[in-house]
Write a protein that binds this DNA or RNA. Structure first.
Lengths: 190, 190
DNA sequence: GCAAAACATTGACCTAGGTCAAAAAATCAT
DNA sequence: ATGATTTTTTGACCTAGGTCAATGTTTTGC
C-alpha cells in the first residue's frame, strides 16, 4: 500500500496524470520480494518486467569474455529500471539483474507497460521521460569514462551518490567504476 | 524534393504513418546546406534543431578540460541526430556539432518536433524509437569502452562502419575511438 | 604551382592501472 | 563462538596507451 503511494509519487514527478489513469497504471504493478543475492534476470533471458524499487538495492551487470563483472546500473530506493535494452527489444539480455540487499520492488510486465503506453498518453510521456533520463545518464557515464581518471571517477561517485557508496561493497563499486578492486583500495587510501 | 523522399523513407522504417500525417511532418523540415568545417552548434548554445542528414557527414564532439576533442557521434547519410541531451532539455550544450564534409541536412525545430509529438501519434512513436536506438547505441559504446582494447575498438569500427572509416580523417576517428592519433597510427600498421 | 597548414607516422620515454599473490579483516553459516 | 568464505588491502611487477618531439605526407589557399 505504502509502496504504491511511493510509486505514484515518483511517476508524478515526471508526468502529469489524472487520478483514474494513475490508479490504472499503479494497479498493473505487483509486489515482489527479492532476497539478497537472488538473480532477477540471467544472461540470455528476456527482460519481461520493469521495476520500481521501493526498498533495497538491485544492480544490472554483465560479464566480459575474460570473466570480469562490469556493473552497469546500481539502483537503490526510490528508483526505476530494468535491463532496458532487452526490455525494449524483447531479445535475450546479455545483462544480469541481481539484488545486493533484500529488496522490495513493484514490477510491471512488458505487455502491461506497452499496453498502457497505447491507452494512456501520460504513461507514454512518462516512458519518454524514462528514455530521455536513461540516455542522459549514459551520456554522463561515457563522458566520465573518457575524461576522468580512476580517482576522479571515484570522487565523482562519492559526491553524486554517497548513499550508494555507503551501501554497496567495494568490489561492486569498483566494477561500476570500471576499475579493479585493488585499484579502488589503493586510491581510497590516498 | 529528393531529400524529402529520403526522409520519408527513413521515418517509415521506424513508425507507421498515414500519408497526410507524413506530409505534415516532412513539411516541417527545412533544407540546410552546410560547408565543410562549418559549426552547426557551439558549446554553450542550446540545440534547437534536429537533423536528417541527406548527404555529407556531421559529428558531435566535446572538448575536455585538457583541451582534447572527444567525438561522440559520426553521422553520414542517411541518418538522423543532433546534440540530443541539449535538444531534449533545451539547456546549453557542452557538445559542438560540425560538418566534416559539405553536407545537406533537413532540419526541424524543437518547437515543431514537440508540437508534432503532441498532434501525431506516429511521430511520438517515431521519437520513442529514436530514444530507444540512441540508448542502445550508448550501451554498445560503453560496453566497447570498458571491455575492448584500442585495437579491438578499431577493428570493430572497421567491421561495423567501413564507410565512416573511409570518409573520416584518422585524427577524428581516433577521437571517436577514445585513443590518440599516434596510437591509431601505430595499431593500424600492426 | 607553391608555400603554409594540417594530418599522419615514428621514436623514445613515462605512468595509470592491471595482474598475481599473499596477508589481513570482515562477514556468513552453523 | 568458531571455522569457512568472502572481501579488502598491500606488495611487487608489468604493459597498453599517453606524451612530446621530430619527420614525412597530404591537403588547402592563394
Amino acid at each position: 500500500m505504502e509502496a504504491k503511494n511511493n510509486l505514484k509519487q515518483l511517476i508524478q514527478m515526471f508526468s502529469v496524470f489524472d487520478g483514474k489513469d494513475l490508479d490504472k497504471v499503479v494497479d498493473c504493478f505487483k509486489t515482489r520480494l527479492i532476497k539478497k543475492n537472488e538473480i532477477l534476470l540471467c544472461e540470455g533471458d528476456i527482460a519481461k518486467e520493469f521495476y520500481f524499487i521501493n526498498s533495497g538495492c538491485i544492480r544490472t551487470y554483465f560479464i566480459t569474455k575474460q570473466g570480469h563483472e562490469k556493473t552497469r546500473y546500481l539502483m537503490i530506493e526510490p528508483s526505476i529500471g530494468t535491463a532496458l535494452t532487452s526490455f525494449i527489444s524483447q531479445k535475450p539480455s546479455f545483462e544480469f539483474i541481481d539484488a545486493l540487499e533484500n529488496t522490495e520492488v513493484l514490477a510491471i510486465s512488458y505487455k502491461d507497460f506497452y499496453r498502457l503506453a497505447d491507452e494512456i498518453q501520460a504513461w507514454k510521456n512518462f516512458y519518454l521521460k524514462i528514455m530521455e533520463m536513461a540516455y542522459s545518464f549514459q551520456n554522463r557515464k561515457i563522458e566520465s569514462l573518457v575524461t576522468l581518471s580512476a580517482t576522479e571517477r571515484y570522487k565523482q561517485l562519492i559526491k553524486e551518490n554517497p548513499k550508494i557508496v555507503q551501501r554497496v561493497s567495494n568490489k561492486i563499486l569498483a566494477s561500476y567504476l570500471d576499475i579493479k578492486q585493488e585499484t579502488l583500495s589503493r586510491l581510497k587510501s590516498k
